[in-house]
Nucleic acid binder design. Sequence first.
DNA 1: CGACTGATTCGACGTTCATCGAAGCATAAC
DNA 2: GTTATGCTTCGATGAACGTCGAATCAGTCG
Lengths: 122, 122
Amino acid sequence: MSTTTDSPEQIPSHATELPVIAACCTTPSSVSDTAATELARMFKALGDPARVKIMSMLLNADEVCACDFSASIEKTAATTSHHLKLLRDVGLVATEKRGTWVYYRVVPERLAAVRDALAFTC
Amino acid sequence: MSTTTDSPEQIPSHATELPVIAACCTTPSSVSDTAATELARMFKALGDPARVKIMSMLLNADEVCACDFSASIEKTAATTSHHLKLLRDVGLVATEKRGTWVYYRVVPERLAAVRDALAFTC
DNA sequence: CGACTGATTCGACGTTCATCGAAGCATAAC
DNA sequence: GTTATGCTTCGATGAACGTCGAATCAGTCG
């Protein structure tokens, strides 16, 4: 195990496609059960200040060593690792191990997908 | 009290402006503490399937009677009201009472703000 | 007025979550 | 090999969350 996908959790196979909440130009039906659950999972993963900060760091640097997060979010290494795992589990970030260090980067398609799910102007 | 703002919680005064996670075209600094907390509050409000469904209904209908949510999300009236309150508290939806019924609608600027906070391509 | 209906709050419950210290696992350097 | 360092997992604990029934509040209609 060396790159990107090393989490045992359920990352949906259609990892870059997420349901759109408002299909305002098509049939006015509500989002499905599974779609709502999947979407909620993504939002929940972003629903913590520590994880927002992590995403912010990643978006501004496009690659960050795991060792750098702990100081920035002011949490212990264990807690930091926990937050990183949650972001990994929903596919928002990916890891690459180089020697002793682990580097994190955002998965742009995945973030774009969750952003697009919020689209409502057409 | 008849329209829109009737929640005792802390809706930030700059209700339509939310921090952007990635200021990739400006100084590469991380998001501030308060900004991260505020943003996380919004994401957390969206981090439940029932609330995602509620938002979906609102975006596809632009006005929904409170009495219609309960059946769609398959929860009791009490639970539904709880979820609606959470969405109100972060300013994502607004209410208008007409007679016995309460109508909910999305606050577009607020939703756009949270969506824009996820912007990272420039 | 009283009875009814829709919506919200209250109180309680079980579950999930954030947090940390300690233990475990790798990899690098000696 | 041993030691040291970075990262993750484990176990525990206290707080927050989702859920519902019951009670309450706010309108409407006889």
